[in-house]
Amino acid sequence: MIALQQVTKTFSISPTTSFTAVDNVSLTIERGTMTILKGPSGSGKTTLLALIGCMTRPSSGRIMLQGVETSFFQATDRSEGFDSSSLPERFLTEIRRSTFGFIFQQFNLIKGISALQNIMLPAYPTGEQQPVVRQRAVELMEQFDLLRHCNSPVEWLSGGELQRVAIARALINNPIAIIADEPTAHLDSQLSQAFMESIGLLKDSGKTVLIASHDPIVYNSSRADQVVEMRDGRIVQQEPPV
């Protein structure tokens, strides 16, 4: 479970002016559910995802992570979890690697190397043995119907295939949660539907899913358990209501 308690993120633009991108947000995300953040561009969705994904720290407030196992914290179901915003940098990286898998709007794949290697890339710095990682990557490619592109450079792949490679890459370190930022922005509606199907299957397999999007195909999806609407850094509406 992820619980945000009065989280605020303020960017200082100049010594005298600052900008509050996320303003006093409290939100609970249950394990194994799908949460959609919707709202116009600039409403703070990406910033909120970055906060939850331990990519940046809140200016104030707490982000409690429960059920996350790390070398420094052995979680039990009874325990309250810990506040990720108070942890030192190296622990944040560790949590980010082991807990979250990220999917980006631009796919963020590296050109010139194979789809397989792209999928394996997040596992390299963890020090896991390559054959083990490769085995897992091949299984993911099979799961997402990518096997025939195993050794193709990614620039040969179609948009839908690129999106599936990006999903597979997000899964390589066996994360608890998947975080996707505008994942359908570069897909047509058919591919967007297919994407929601794949993500729905991930939820069914127990992953926690968190998507920021202003695409109706995403936020109207029947797969969503919770839809949170944001505007100017605040939550303006929540479905189902708390």
Partner: peptide, 17 residues
Amino acid sequence: MHHALSRHRNILDFALS
């Protein structure tokens, strides 16, 4: 230690490619 070594190996592999 084991992990640190294979981290080097993995990253060296990627550097070569």
